[in-house]
C-alpha cells in the first residue's frame, strides 16, 4: 500500500554517520561536491574514491541501496559518457571510423565526467540514506538561521518543507484513490497521444487540486488553533546540539578539503 512509502530513502541504522549532527553532514556534502570538481590528478581521484569507499562502509547501509540510488541517473551518466567520448577532440586518435574519431583525451574526459557524476549521486545518497528528512530540515533551519538577519524567511521556508514532507505521502495515497475511482468509471488513462493523455488527466487533477486546497485550509485552521504565529518567539522541541564527534568530523572535513586543494596546486 502507498501508506508505506517514505520520503527520501532513509535507511535506519545506528552508524556513526547516522548519529552525526545533520549540519555536519550538510557541510560535509557541500565540501565533498567542491572536492569532486576540484580533483584533477590521479592522487586526488584516489583520495576522493577512498573517502567514498570508507564512508559507504562505515554508513553500514547495504551496497544495493547505493546502487539503487544510481539507477535514476544511469541514463544521464551513459549519455555524458557518450557525448564526451565522441565530441572531445585531441591529439592522439585511438579509433577512426568514417567521420567518427575517438581521441584518447575523449576517453579520459568521458571517464572523468562519469566518475564525477557517480560521486555526486553517491555523496547525496550518503546524506539521505543516513539522515531523516526531518533532520535535514532541522539542520538546514539551524545552519541557515543567520540569514534571518538579512530578511531571508528561513523559518517559513523550513516550515513549508516540514509540511510538504508530512503531506506528500497523504496526497500520493489520495492520488491513487482518485485514480482508481475514475478508472472504475471507465476513465482511459493509458492510451492516446500526449495531448489526449493530458486531457484525460483532468478527472484526476481537478479532484486532487480541490482536496489539496481543502487540506491546506484545514491545516491553516489547525495551525492557528495551536497558536502558530510565525517564527518569532518560537522554541524548538528538538534543539540540535553538537557533540564531540561532530567537532572531530568538522576537522576531518576541513582537512580533507585542504588536502585536495594542496594536491591540485602542488601535485
Amino acid at each position: 500500500m502507498r501508506r508505506n512509502i517514505t520520503i527520501g530513502q532513509y535507511y535506519p541504522e545506528n552508524s556513526i554517520l547516522h548519529r552525526l549532527d545533520p549540519r555536519v553532514k550538510l557541510l560535509g556534502l557541500i565540501v565533498f561536491l567542491v572536492c569532486v570538481f576540484l580533483m584533477d590528478s590521479y592522487w586526488s581521484y584516489g583520495a576522493v574514491t577512498a573517502a567514498v569507499v570508507i564512508l559507504v562502509i562505515i554508513s553500514r547501509v547495504p551496497l544495493r541501496y547505493f546502487v539503487r540510488s544510481l539507477k535514476p541517473v544511469f541514463f544521464i551518466i551513459i549519455l555524458t559518457f557518450i557525448l564526451n567520448i565522441f565530441f572531445t577532440s585531441g591529439e592522439e586518435i585511438l579509433v577512426k571510423w568514417g567521420i567518427i574519431s575517438i581521441y584518447k583525451e575523449g576517453v579520459i574526459m568521458a571517464l572523468k565526467m562519469s566518475i564525477r557524476l557517480i560521486y555526486l549521486v553517491l555523496s547525496s545518497a550518503l546524506l539521505t540514506l543516513t539522515t531523516t528528512p526531518n533532520d535535514i530540515t532541522d539542520g538546514m533551519e539551524k545552519a541557515l538561521r543567520p540569514l534571518n538577519k538579512i530578511h531571508v524567511p528561513i523559518h517559513e521556508m523550513t516550515m513549508m518543507m516540514t509540511i510538504a514532507l508530512r503531506f506528500i505521502p497523504i496526497i500520493s495515497e489520495e492520488t491513487d484513490k482518485i485514480r482508481k475511482a475514475q478508472i472504475s468509471r471507465g476513465a482511459d488513462l493509458e492510451t492516446g497521444n500526449i495531448i489526449k493523455r493530458a486531457k484525460n488527466m483532468v478527472p484526476i487533477l481537478v479532484p486532487l487540486l480541490v482536496s489539496s486546497f481543502r487540506r491546506a485550509g484545514d491545516l491553516a485552521l489547525a495551525m492557528d488553533a495551536r497558536c502558530y504565529h510565525g517564527g518569532e518567539g518560537r522554541t524548538k522541541y528538538k534543539e540540535l546540539r553538537y557533540g564531540k564527534k561532530d567537532g572531530i568530523a568538522y576537522l576531518m572535513i576541513l582537512a580533507f578539503l585542504a588536502g585536495i586543494i594542496l594536491m591540485r596546486n602542488f601535485l
Binding site: 484513490k177 475511482a181 475514475q182 472504475s184 471507465g186 478527472p203 479532484p207 480541490v210 482536496s211
Partner: peptide, 28 residues
Amino acid sequence: HHFKVGMVFQYPEHQLFETTVLKDVCFG
C-alpha cells in the same frame, strides 16, 4: 468489467470534477 461492477469508494464526493453535476454523472 468496471462497468458491470460499479464501485462507490468511501467519500465518493472527493472524485467529482466536472463543471456541472449532470456532466459529472455523464462521465461514466
